[in-house]
Computed example of a mutant assay.
Amino acid sequence: MNEALAISASGLVKRFGERRVVDGIDIAVPRGAVYGVLGPNGAGKTTTLRMLLGIIEPNAGERTLLGYRRPREASDRVGYLPEERGLYPAMKAREAIAFLGALRGLDWRIGRKRADVLLERAGLAHAADSKIRKLSKGMAQLVQLLGSVVHEPELLVLDEPFSGLDPVNQENLERLILAERDRGATILFSTHVMAHAERLCDRLTIIAGGRARFEGTVADARGTLPMRAHYVPHQEGPGIAALLPADAVRQADGWRFTVPEGGAEETLKRLIDAGHGISGLSIERPGLHDAFVRIVGGEEMSA
Protein backbone atom coordinates (compact mmCIF):
# COMPACT_ATOMS: atom_id res chain seq x y z
CA MET A 1 0.00 0.00 0.00
CA ASN A 2 1.35 3.40 -1.02
CA GLU A 3 0.61 5.94 1.74
CA ALA A 4 1.30 8.81 -0.67
CA LEU A 5 -1.74 7.88 -2.76
CA ALA A 6 -5.36 8.61 -1.89
CA ILE A 7 -6.54 6.32 -4.68
CA SER A 8 -4.77 3.63 -6.67
CA ALA A 9 -6.24 1.30 -9.24
CA SER A 10 -4.82 -1.12 -11.76
CA GLY A 11 -6.44 -2.96 -14.65
CA LEU A 12 -10.02 -1.90 -13.91
CA VAL A 13 -12.50 -3.54 -16.26
CA LYS A 14 -16.28 -3.15 -16.32
CA ARG A 15 -18.60 -4.91 -18.73
CA PHE A 16 -22.30 -4.35 -19.22
CA GLY A 17 -23.47 -7.29 -21.24
CA GLU A 18 -21.06 -7.76 -24.12
CA ARG A 19 -19.81 -4.16 -23.98
CA ARG A 20 -16.62 -3.21 -22.18
CA VAL A 21 -17.34 0.26 -20.83
CA VAL A 22 -14.02 0.40 -18.97
CA ASP A 23 -11.15 -1.60 -20.41
CA GLY A 24 -8.09 -1.91 -18.17
CA ILE A 25 -7.71 1.54 -16.60
CA ASP A 26 -4.91 2.39 -14.14
CA ILE A 27 -5.15 5.47 -11.89
CA ALA A 28 -2.91 6.82 -9.11
CA VAL A 29 -4.20 9.92 -7.28
CA PRO A 30 -1.66 11.57 -4.92
CA ARG A 31 -2.93 12.75 -1.55
CA GLY A 32 -3.68 16.47 -1.51
CA ALA A 33 -3.86 16.75 -5.30
CA VAL A 34 -6.58 18.01 -7.59
CA TYR A 35 -6.89 15.20 -10.12
CA GLY A 36 -9.02 15.23 -13.24
CA VAL A 37 -10.54 12.37 -15.20
CA LEU A 38 -11.19 13.81 -18.65
CA GLY A 39 -12.93 12.38 -21.66
CA PRO A 40 -15.75 12.84 -24.14
CA ASN A 41 -19.31 11.85 -23.25
CA GLY A 42 -19.62 8.08 -22.98
CA ALA A 43 -15.89 7.56 -22.43
CA GLY A 44 -16.36 5.62 -19.17
CA LYS A 45 -15.62 8.42 -16.67
CA THR A 46 -18.67 7.90 -14.44
CA THR A 47 -18.28 4.12 -14.42
CA THR A 48 -14.62 4.51 -13.43
CA LEU A 49 -15.46 6.84 -10.53
CA ARG A 50 -18.19 4.50 -9.30
CA MET A 51 -15.79 1.56 -9.31
CA LEU A 52 -13.19 3.58 -7.41
CA LEU A 53 -15.82 4.44 -4.78
CA GLY A 54 -17.12 0.87 -4.52
CA ILE A 55 -20.60 1.81 -5.76
CA ILE A 56 -20.22 -0.83 -8.45
CA GLU A 57 -17.75 -3.70 -8.57
CA PRO A 58 -15.25 -4.17 -11.39
CA ASN A 59 -15.21 -7.36 -13.44
CA ALA A 60 -11.42 -7.32 -13.17
CA GLY A 61 -8.68 -5.25 -11.58
CA GLU A 62 -7.88 -3.92 -8.13
CA ARG A 63 -8.38 -0.60 -6.39
CA THR A 64 -7.52 0.97 -3.05
CA LEU A 65 -9.22 4.05 -1.60
CA LEU A 66 -7.68 5.86 1.40
CA GLY A 67 -5.88 2.62 2.24
CA TYR A 68 -8.97 0.40 2.03
CA ARG A 69 -9.24 -2.42 -0.48
CA ARG A 70 -12.99 -2.29 0.10
CA PRO A 71 -13.68 1.36 -0.79
CA ARG A 72 -17.04 1.58 0.95
CA GLU A 73 -15.35 1.04 4.31
CA ALA A 74 -13.96 4.57 3.90
CA SER A 75 -17.30 6.15 2.91
CA ASP A 76 -17.49 8.46 5.95
CA ARG A 77 -14.17 10.00 4.89
CA VAL A 78 -15.36 10.66 1.35
CA GLY A 79 -17.56 13.38 -0.13
CA TYR A 80 -19.33 12.49 -3.37
CA LEU A 81 -21.28 14.58 -5.85
CA PRO A 82 -22.89 12.18 -8.34
CA GLU A 83 -23.65 13.00 -11.94
CA GLU A 84 -27.37 12.63 -11.19
CA ARG A 85 -28.25 15.46 -8.83
CA GLY A 86 -30.95 14.97 -6.23
CA LEU A 87 -32.14 16.75 -3.10
CA TYR A 88 -35.44 16.61 -1.24
CA PRO A 89 -37.34 19.57 -2.75
CA ALA A 90 -39.21 20.38 0.48
CA MET A 91 -36.01 20.65 2.55
CA LYS A 92 -34.47 24.01 3.33
CA ALA A 93 -30.93 24.55 2.05
CA ARG A 94 -29.40 24.51 5.53
CA GLU A 95 -31.21 21.30 6.46
CA ALA A 96 -30.31 19.62 3.17
CA ILE A 97 -26.60 20.25 3.78
CA ALA A 98 -26.83 19.02 7.39
CA PHE A 99 -28.78 15.96 6.24
CA LEU A 100 -26.11 14.97 3.71
CA GLY A 101 -23.49 15.40 6.43
CA ALA A 102 -25.50 13.22 8.80
CA LEU A 103 -25.48 10.43 6.20
CA ARG A 104 -21.68 10.48 6.61
CA GLY A 105 -21.85 10.42 10.40
CA LEU A 106 -21.80 14.16 11.18
CA ASP A 107 -23.87 15.39 14.13
CA TRP A 108 -26.95 17.35 12.99
CA ARG A 109 -26.18 20.37 15.17
CA ILE A 110 -22.63 20.60 13.88
CA GLY A 111 -23.93 20.10 10.36
CA ARG A 112 -26.32 23.04 10.63
CA LYS A 113 -23.61 25.35 11.97
CA ARG A 114 -21.16 24.34 9.26
CA ALA A 115 -23.91 24.71 6.65
CA ASP A 116 -24.35 28.37 7.56
CA VAL A 117 -20.59 28.97 7.22
CA LEU A 118 -20.44 27.17 3.87
CA LEU A 119 -23.48 29.00 2.51
CA GLU A 120 -21.94 32.32 3.52
CA ARG A 121 -18.66 31.48 1.75
CA ALA A 122 -20.54 30.42 -1.37
CA GLY A 123 -22.55 33.65 -1.45
CA LEU A 124 -25.77 31.79 -0.64
CA ALA A 125 -26.41 32.95 2.93
CA HIS A 126 -29.69 34.49 1.77
CA ALA A 127 -30.88 31.04 0.67
CA ALA A 128 -30.26 29.19 3.95
CA ASP A 129 -33.97 29.05 4.82
CA SER A 130 -35.20 28.64 1.24
CA LYS A 131 -36.66 25.33 0.19
CA ILE A 132 -34.75 23.48 -2.51
CA ARG A 133 -37.71 23.73 -4.90
CA LYS A 134 -37.45 27.53 -4.73
CA LEU A 135 -33.78 27.62 -5.74
CA SER A 136 -32.43 27.88 -9.27
CA LYS A 137 -30.84 24.76 -10.71
CA GLY A 138 -27.35 26.19 -10.24
CA MET A 139 -28.00 27.20 -6.62
CA ALA A 140 -29.45 23.78 -5.81
CA GLN A 141 -26.41 22.13 -7.35
CA LEU A 142 -24.09 24.23 -5.18
CA VAL A 143 -26.13 23.31 -2.10
CA GLN A 144 -25.67 19.64 -2.92
CA LEU A 145 -21.95 20.22 -3.37
CA LEU A 146 -21.76 21.93 0.03
CA GLY A 147 -23.50 18.87 1.43
CA SER A 148 -20.69 16.73 0.08
CA VAL A 149 -18.01 18.73 1.94
CA VAL A 150 -19.81 19.62 5.18
CA HIS A 151 -18.30 16.62 7.01
CA GLU A 152 -14.80 17.78 5.92
CA PRO A 153 -13.87 14.67 3.95
CA GLU A 154 -10.33 13.56 3.18
CA LEU A 155 -11.38 12.81 -0.39
CA LEU A 156 -13.88 14.72 -2.52
CA VAL A 157 -15.14 13.02 -5.70
CA LEU A 158 -17.14 15.17 -8.14
CA ASP A 159 -18.75 13.72 -11.26
CA GLU A 160 -19.18 16.43 -13.94
CA PRO A 161 -19.58 19.11 -11.25
CA PHE A 162 -19.65 22.06 -13.70
CA SER A 163 -22.46 20.67 -15.83
CA GLY A 164 -25.46 23.01 -15.95
CA LEU A 165 -23.83 25.84 -13.98
CA ASP A 166 -23.75 29.41 -15.26
CA PRO A 167 -20.35 31.17 -15.43
CA VAL A 168 -20.77 32.85 -12.04
CA ASN A 169 -21.54 29.59 -10.27
CA GLN A 170 -18.73 27.84 -12.17
CA GLU A 171 -16.33 30.37 -10.64
CA ASN A 172 -17.90 29.78 -7.21
CA LEU A 173 -17.35 26.05 -7.65
CA GLU A 174 -13.73 26.51 -8.71
CA ARG A 175 -13.10 28.59 -5.58
CA LEU A 176 -14.71 25.92 -3.41
CA ILE A 177 -12.55 23.18 -4.96
CA LEU A 178 -9.40 25.21 -4.31
CA ALA A 179 -10.53 25.93 -0.74
CA GLU A 180 -10.99 22.20 -0.13
CA ARG A 181 -7.54 21.54 -1.56
CA ASP A 182 -6.06 24.20 0.73
CA ARG A 183 -7.81 22.51 3.65
CA GLY A 184 -5.86 19.37 2.79
CA ALA A 185 -8.46 17.33 0.94
CA THR A 186 -7.76 15.32 -2.20
CA ILE A 187 -10.11 16.20 -5.06
CA LEU A 188 -10.96 13.86 -7.92
CA PHE A 189 -13.35 15.17 -10.54
CA SER A 190 -14.52 14.18 -14.01
CA THR A 191 -15.25 16.63 -16.79
CA HIS A 192 -15.30 17.06 -20.55
CA VAL A 193 -14.72 20.84 -20.24
CA MET A 194 -11.01 21.46 -20.68
CA ALA A 195 -10.90 25.02 -19.29
CA HIS A 196 -11.70 23.89 -15.75
CA ALA A 197 -9.18 21.07 -15.86
CA GLU A 198 -6.49 23.38 -17.23
CA ARG A 199 -6.95 25.83 -14.35
CA LEU A 200 -7.41 23.35 -11.51
CA CYS A 201 -5.66 20.04 -12.08
CA ASP A 202 -2.29 19.00 -10.70
CA ARG A 203 -2.52 15.77 -12.69
CA LEU A 204 -5.07 14.18 -15.00
CA THR A 205 -6.01 11.07 -16.91
CA ILE A 206 -7.63 11.28 -20.34
CA ILE A 207 -10.04 8.44 -21.11
CA ALA A 208 -11.54 7.53 -24.48
CA GLY A 209 -13.36 4.39 -25.47
CA GLY A 210 -12.99 3.00 -21.94
CA ARG A 211 -9.18 3.20 -22.04
CA ALA A 212 -6.68 5.62 -20.55
CA ARG A 213 -4.95 7.44 -23.40
CA PHE A 214 -2.83 9.78 -21.29
CA GLU A 215 -1.73 10.35 -17.67
CA GLY A 216 0.36 13.22 -16.40
CA THR A 217 0.32 16.94 -15.71
CA VAL A 218 -1.44 19.61 -17.77
CA ALA A 219 1.98 20.72 -19.01
CA ASP A 220 2.77 17.13 -20.06
CA ALA A 221 -0.47 16.96 -22.03
CA ARG A 222 0.15 20.28 -23.74
CA GLY A 223 3.68 19.13 -24.49
CA THR A 224 2.35 16.33 -26.73
CA LEU A 225 1.81 19.01 -29.37
CA PRO A 226 4.53 21.18 -30.92
CA MET A 227 4.58 24.91 -30.30
CA ARG A 228 3.05 27.28 -32.84
CA ALA A 229 4.50 30.56 -34.06
CA HIS A 230 2.58 33.70 -34.99
CA TYR A 231 4.77 35.74 -37.33
CA VAL A 232 4.06 39.22 -38.68
CA PRO A 233 6.52 40.37 -41.39
CA HIS A 234 7.84 43.91 -41.45
CA GLN A 235 7.58 43.94 -45.21
CA GLU A 236 5.83 41.11 -46.99
CA GLY A 237 6.77 40.38 -50.55
CA PRO A 238 6.65 37.60 -53.14
CA GLY A 239 8.14 34.26 -52.20
CA ILE A 240 7.58 34.56 -48.45
CA ALA A 241 5.51 31.36 -48.33
CA ALA A 242 8.44 29.35 -49.71
CA LEU A 243 10.59 30.47 -46.77
CA LEU A 244 8.09 29.32 -44.14
CA PRO A 245 7.41 25.76 -42.92
CA ALA A 246 5.11 23.69 -45.13
CA ASP A 247 2.13 24.01 -42.79
CA ALA A 248 2.24 27.84 -42.67
CA VAL A 249 -1.19 29.44 -43.01
CA ARG A 250 -1.78 33.04 -44.08
CA GLN A 251 -4.13 34.94 -41.76
CA ALA A 252 -5.29 38.54 -41.61
CA ASP A 253 -2.79 39.33 -38.86
CA GLY A 254 0.21 37.47 -40.31
CA TRP A 255 1.30 33.86 -40.63
CA ARG A 256 0.94 30.91 -38.29
CA PHE A 257 3.06 27.78 -38.47
CA THR A 258 4.39 24.89 -36.40
CA VAL A 259 7.76 25.63 -34.84
CA PRO A 260 10.30 23.21 -36.40
CA GLU A 261 11.84 20.61 -34.12
CA GLY A 262 15.15 22.47 -34.03
CA GLY A 263 13.49 25.80 -33.20
CA ALA A 264 12.38 28.83 -35.21
CA GLU A 265 15.80 30.49 -35.57
CA GLU A 266 16.65 29.14 -39.02
CA THR A 267 13.25 30.10 -40.39
CA LEU A 268 13.51 33.61 -38.98
CA LYS A 269 17.04 34.03 -40.36
CA ARG A 270 15.81 33.15 -43.87
CA LEU A 271 13.01 35.69 -43.58
CA ILE A 272 15.34 38.44 -42.40
CA ASP A 273 17.96 37.68 -45.07
CA ALA A 274 15.24 37.85 -47.74
CA GLY A 275 14.24 41.33 -46.55
CA HIS A 276 10.88 40.46 -44.98
CA GLY A 277 11.99 41.35 -41.45
CA ILE A 278 9.99 40.86 -38.27
CA SER A 279 7.26 43.23 -37.12
CA GLY A 280 5.80 40.81 -34.58
CA LEU A 281 6.52 37.31 -33.27
CA SER A 282 5.01 35.13 -30.60
CA ILE A 283 5.56 31.47 -29.76
CA GLU A 284 2.44 29.78 -28.40
CA ARG A 285 2.10 26.50 -26.56
CA PRO A 286 -1.13 24.69 -27.56
CA GLY A 287 -3.83 24.62 -24.90
CA LEU A 288 -5.21 21.56 -23.14
CA HIS A 289 -8.20 21.53 -25.48
CA ASP A 290 -5.94 21.08 -28.51
CA ALA A 291 -3.94 18.38 -26.76
CA PHE A 292 -7.15 16.62 -25.69
CA VAL A 293 -8.45 16.52 -29.27
CA ARG A 294 -5.14 15.10 -30.50
CA ILE A 295 -4.90 12.48 -27.74
CA VAL A 296 -8.52 11.39 -27.97
CA GLY A 297 -8.73 11.58 -31.77
CA GLY A 298 -11.42 12.93 -34.05
CA GLU A 299 -13.23 9.60 -34.23
CA GLU A 300 -13.75 9.49 -30.46
CA MET A 301 -14.79 13.14 -30.34
CA SER A 302 -17.56 12.55 -32.84
CA ALA A 303 -18.79 9.34 -31.25
Results as ranks from 00 to 15, higher is better:
4 A>R: 09
11 G>H: 08
12 L>H: 00
12 L>S: 01
19 R>L: 10
23 D>N: 12
27 I>R: 04
29 V>G: 03
30 P>K: 02
30 P>M: 03
33 A>K: 08
33 A>L: 05
37 V>R: 02
43 A>R: 09
49 L>G: 05
51 M>D: 12
54 G>R: 12
58 P>F: 07
69 R>Q: 05
70 R>T: 06
72 R>S: 11
74 A>M: 06
90 A>N: 12
91 M>Y: 14
116 D>M: 05
117 V>T: 15
117 V>Q: 13
119 L>F: 09
120 E>A: 14
120 E>H: 11
121 R>W: 14
132 I>A: 11
133 R>I: 06
140 A>N: 05
143 V>F: 08
143 V>P: 04
144 Q>D: 04
150 V>D: 14
151 H>E: 13
160 E>F: 13
161 P>T: 08
166 D>Q: 00
166 D>R: 00
166 D>L: 00
168 V>F: 06
171 E>Y: 14
172 N>M: 12
177 I>M: 08
180 E>A: 11
181 R>G: 00
190 S>D: 08
191 T>Y: 11
196 H>D: 11
196 H>G: 15
202 D>R: 07
203 R>T: 08
206 I>A: 04
207 I>K: 00
209 G>P: 12
210 G>I: 06
211 R>N: 06
214 F>A: 01
216 G>E: 13
216 G>R: 10
221 A>Q: 08
224 T>C: 05
229 A>M: 08
231 Y>R: 02
233 P>K: 03
235 Q>N: 15
236 E>D: 14
237 G>T: 05
238 P>I: 13
238 P>M: 06
241 A>L: 05
242 A>P: 07
242 A>L: 07
245 P>F: 05
245 P>H: 09
247 D>I: 08
247 D>F: 03
250 R>G: 04
252 A>Y: 03
253 D>S: 08
257 F>M: 09
261 E>K: 14
261 E>Y: 07
263 G>W: 02
266 E>W: 00
269 K>Y: 02
270 R>M: 02
270 R>E: 01
272 I>A: 15
272 I>H: 06
274 A>D: 10
285 R>P: 08
286 P>N: 11
291 A>V: 10
294 R>A: 10
298 G>L: 01
